[in-house]
């Protein structure tokens, strides 16, 4: 790109080496300061979540449902169940869509639809999660007239899909073509080669994609606001309004009651741990794969 001549013209000739050395050190100090500026909010946020969350979390908080503040406030069990159920369903739907799309991109690289699919999938990944909830609201909640866990799961599935898709594509491409050729040489049809040879070789990578998707979807509150609607009751039926931890944090944080704010920190710690476990699993699976 930049030809060497332009570099030579920028670097001053002759003396002033001392000034350049000083400048060199000044920039290093600035870079270190900038890095500290980046890392310190992470420590501040994680520290606040850990300290305040640990002060709140106990067995009752984890296992009780919602109760009014006057009755001790209860816990977030209903929200944990709701979060897990909706994300499980979302993982099924979004996982299937994203996985299939990823297989298409990786195993049929010349298919005419691929450039569009790749662009659109990245676009979908970049679009605000809020809009994904809003569109499910418009096509499902509004016509049926009710919030439901299913609608919430669908919104989360849309968030998951592009993440799983690109992760699947990336990991399938790491499987060497000779594996496919070996299968084809045995007379296996292409679909059998993909299902029996390519995908098993990339399982860990697919798990990574799913975990990354879960880590993202589990923390989303905005799309669920329009779809799952939130709830104060424990239910295992996604046909009803469903609570999620992220929604709980949002609602409790804005309440004037100190108890509720403490509970928001507690819920935040649980959610953070969930997200951390998912991203650690994703990391671990990738490392194993490599």
């Amino acid at each position: 790109m930049t030809p060497p001549s332009s570099i030579a013209s920028v670097i001053p000739k002759g003396g002033n080496l001392r000034i350049r050395r000083v400048w060199n050190s000044v920039m290093l100090v600035l870079l270190v300061l900038g890095s500290i500026v980046v890392v310190s909010p992470l420590i501040a946020v994680l520290g606040a979540v850990l300290v305040n969350g640990l002060a709140t979390i106990n067995w009752a908080f984890l296992t009780q449902e919602f109760r009014p503040v006057t009755e001790g406030g209860g816990g977030v069990w209903h929200a944990i169940v709701g979060t897990l159920l909706m994300n499980l369903l979302a993982l099924l739907i979004g996982g299937l869509l994203g996985f299939a799309g990823g297989v298409l991109l990786s195993e049929y690289p010349d298919h005419p639809i691929n450039p569009y699919l790749r662009t659109i999938s990245d676009l979908l990944n970049g679009l605000p999660a809020l809009l994904k909830g809003l569109v499910i609201y418009a096509i499902i909640v509004l016509p049926t007239g009710m919030f439901s866990g299913y609608a919430g799961a669908l919104a989360l599935a849309i968030i998951l899909t592009p993440i799983v898709l690109r992760a699947t594509e990336g990991v399938l491409q790491l499987v060497p073509w000779s594996v496919r050729e070996a299968g084809l040489a045995l007379g296996l049809p292409r679909w059998r080669v993909i299902i029996s040879l390519v995908i098993p070789a990339a399982t860990a990578g697919v798990v990574t994609g799913l975990m990354l998707g879960f880590a993202r979807a589990a923390g989303e509150a905005a799309p669920l606001y329009f779809t799952a609607g939130g709830s104060q009751f424990l239910n295992f039926n996604l046909g009803q309004q469903t609570e999620s931890l992220a929604l709980t944090i949002f609602k409790y944080a804005n309440e004037p009651s100190v108890l509720r704010q403490e509970q928001a920190w507690g819920a935040a710690l649980i959610l953070t741990i969930m997200v951390l476990i998912a991203s650690l699993l994703a990391r671990w699976a990738t490392r194993k794969y490599n």
Partner: peptide, 12 residues
Amino acid sequence: LLAALPSVIYGL
């Protein structure tokens, strides 16, 4: 980690 933390937690 910064990218993975949910936005409600930053909000909180």
